[in-house]
Design a binder for these strands. Structure first.
Lengths: 217, 217
DNA sequence: GTCTATAGCTGGATAGAC
DNA sequence: GTCTATCCAGCTATAGAC
């Protein structure tokens, strides 16, 4: 990989972190990369394409970094703990989630939408495989919509990252509340142990009685 | 209220919805408001101040609109249903959450941060009062961190709004999964009825045994 | 591959006539 | 309060020398 290309990828991330998606221009990116501005177009064709490539590379790296920790997670509480560490690291790295900025920018830029969705999907896949492990063997696990839950967890985290930027104390409170909530999982599991079979059939019935959500595209 | 001021507030929202926070410039806003560009500075002083005022007014209106529905909510499932309606309406209104765009912009603009946090707080307060009603009398309600949970729900919703913009089908899946999850609430309540006192003490013990999250600032 | 230079816009903000 | 006109900084993108 040509060193310039790599510098531009890094510079794009720096620019997003320091100026947000709105301020990630050819000039700020080139300055952050310490590279001539015109080289962005030579190597990537457009700003959008550079941002997309940078976001994908950055996300892939971070998913890999956390993949091992996630593979050791054996409860919702532990998953939350990993989320907390990830959140702390994001804050240290520059107080902004690159993915959240791209998501915001993608709302009104069609060329950014698909690459951003693809980057987010990397996290979703990772979370889904954690859920697979956690839910196997539990009463709820037999009927749980794991892809849906994985998406819910991932996008909720994005929202939290954005919230952190405007209310740090509030974000801490969210983590405290989720921590508390995660204890309910164990309690439900305990209760389940009391009459596991009854619980299982109750869950199946309750969940299935609702209008089936037909997959749609 | 001078009609021009109101037109500018509306125009700012239109511009955010159509172009995102990055494209909400004096010129696009003035065009959407059908008002001379220089009047933004006469009436509001700066773009940031206009955006802040518009965001606050818009959020206050929408909170009021949904306040009655929220006051009738008597279960998590119903709360989710209101969330779904709100989400559908946002989509119809222009496929973008104004608050989410402001939140993204506020990450790197200090003058936007506090007003955005204040607007978001309007939703958080509303959700918190719903939680107060829902949790009163339940075993978990006695120890639940309601302000924290209200924030968690609110910011998760913001994340979902952003996700919708890049993956519509994925967002639908999230709602389906949450719907499914919301049935667990009833099941847990049922189980609780079996041995309510045992459950209550179990929850209290479990939740309190963790490191107390000291309020911090 | 990298540079300078520049075209052609759009940005926030202000001055000053009315 | 509203308008025109304008300053100047910043923007994306390209042309063309090296």
């Amino acid at each position: 990989m040509s060193s310039t290309k790599q510098r531009l990828l890094d510079g794009a991330l720096t620019a997003i972190r320091e100026h947000g998606i709105a301020g990630a221009s050819a000039r700020t990116i080139a300055a952050a990369a310490d590279v001539n501005q015109a080289l962005i177009f030579y190597h990537f064709g457009s700003i959008d394409d550079l941002l997309s490539a940078a976001c994908h590379a950055c996300t892939a790296t971070r998913v890999k970094e956390y993949s091992k920790q996630l593979s050791n997670v054996s409860s919702m509480r532990e998953l939350l703990q990993v989320g907390r560490e990830l959140h702390e690291q994001e804050k240290t790295l520059g107080n902004v989630s690159v993915l959240a900025q791209l998501l915001a920018g993608a709302q009104n830029d069609d060329r950014l939408a698909a690459p951003t969705a693809a980057a987010l999907q990397l996290w979703i896949n990772e979370i889904e495989s954690v859920l697979d492990r956690l839910l196997n063997g539990t009463p709820f696990g037999e009927v749980a919509d794991r892809p849906g839950l994985a998406r819910a967890i991932s996008v909720a985290f994005i929202g939290l990252e954005l919230y952190e930027g405007v209310d740090e104390a509030g974000a801490r409170q969210v983590f405290a509340a989720l921590d508390q909530l995660s204890y309910l999982e164990e309690i439900v599991n305990d209760l389940g142990r009391i009459s596991r079979r009854a619980l299982r059939s109750k869950i199946s019935r309750a969940v299935r009685k609702k209008t089936p959500s037909r997959p749609h595209s």
